[in-house]
């Protein structure tokens, strides 16, 4: 199954300057994303997992250029997004959309659902008449499982799950190729989560969408993703086909992360020996060399001195760890 590369990132890096202390005299840099090289293939779901502060959300925003990278490039179908003019980029946005985490915050409370879903259509002047827009909105609402009768209601009249359906309908309005899903189900109830996950899966099959699925929940990522990218403190530490990564995690961090997920079955209770100790280091002042070494039981001197690079250990499987770098 060799398919076309839709998005490629080259040394993508984002640093946020922060100020602290009185009069902001202590300038520091948050290294949100550091040197990320990724290929996203047409029609696949790339899962991005990691804990808070690992830069996964920033990465998503960099890919569709909601944020400008400090360094590096993003190629969408071979075109460099960084070299585009404001107008070109605006029109490029038809191809790439985003579904946000919080369905309460990502919908303007003062607009009716019809206007929210039609906004991308109007912005890019897809249809000539308002009637056509309304028809399309109706179609989208039906597709996403919201009754079209509710078109003239406000977001606050809906529950969280329905609002997330509205966000998805809105993201689909322009028939995009790529959708970035930034924790789309983590604000939802368990019984609603599965509805939304199934909806995302069905839509992908029907419309041939490409997803970048960002989540801290490893089980959700496993369900939806074809490939998984594990991030720690702004860096990719492991990338590979979902099944392989979950069955045989190579990077120590991936291993511990998978161990830590509480499994909904009391037969698999953990004991302490598999547990990762310590706290997540601050992205303002990450440890030298390998960022993970302060928590890693296998750390050696080399890990403190040298930054591990991503190595291909088997076809389609890359790991950034000195243990696998002969």
């Amino acid at each position: 199954m060799e398919s076309k590369v839709l998005v490629e990132t080259k040394d993508l890096t984002k640093e946020f300057p922060t100020k602290s202390g009185s009069f902001g005299k202590n300038r520091a840099t948050v290294h949100a994303v550091t040197d990320v090289n990724l290929q996203i293939f047409q029609g696949e779901t790339l899962g991005v997992v990691g804990e808070s502060g690992c830069g996964k959300s920033t990465l998503g925003r960099l890919i569709i250029r909601l944020l400008d990278p400090t360094r590096g490039q993003v190629f969408f179908e071979g075109k460099d997004l960084g070299k585009m003019s404001v107008e070109e980029l605006r029109s490029q946005r038809k191809q790439m959309q985003m579904v946000f985490q919080d369905p309460y915050a990502s919908l303007n409370p003062r607009l009716r659902v019809r206007d929210l879903i039609a906004e991308p259509l109007i912005t890019h002047k897809v249809n000539k008449t308002a009637k056509e827009d309304t028809d399309r909105v109706e179609d989208l609402m039906r597709k996403c499982g919201i009754r079209p009768e509710f078109m003239y209601r406000y977001p606050h009249q809906f529950s969280g799950g329905q609002r997330q359906r509205v966000s998805i309908a809105r993201a689909l309005a322009l028939n995009p190729k790529l959708i970035i899903c930034d924790e789309p189900v983590s604000a939802l109830d368990v019984s609603i989560q599965s509805q939304i996950l199934n909806l995302l899966g069905d839509l992908q099959q029907e419309l041939g969408l490409t997803y970048v699925f960002i989540s801290h929940d490893l089980s959700v990522v496993r369900y939806l993703s074809d490939r998984v990218c594990v991030m720690f403190l702004g860096k990719v530490c492991e990338l590979g086909v979902t099944r392989d990564i979950y069955a045989n995690p190579l990077h120590p961090y991936t291993k511990f992360l998978l161990e830590a997920v509480p499994i909904p079955d009391p037969k698999y209770r953990k004991d302490q020996k598999d547990m990762l100790t310590g706290e997540i280091p601050s992205p303002v002042n990450p440890p030298s060399g390998c960022h993970f070494r302060t928590r890693c039981p296998y750390a050696t001197e080399r890990c403190a001195k040298e930054v591990p690079q991503l190595h291909e250990v088997e076809p389609g499987r890359t790991v950034a760890c000195h243990l696998f770098d002969k």
């Binding site: 109830d189 599965s194 089980s219 496993r222 939806l224 979950y246």
Partner: peptide, 21 residues
């Protein structure tokens, strides 16, 4: 119990409880 995805198994489709809270 059946609508939550698990890290230990692969599924094509999740079981869902229809409707709303």
């Amino acid at each position: 119990l059946n609508s939550i995805p698990k890290t230990t198994e692969v599924k094509d489709h999740l079981f869902t409880i229809r409707g709303l809270v």
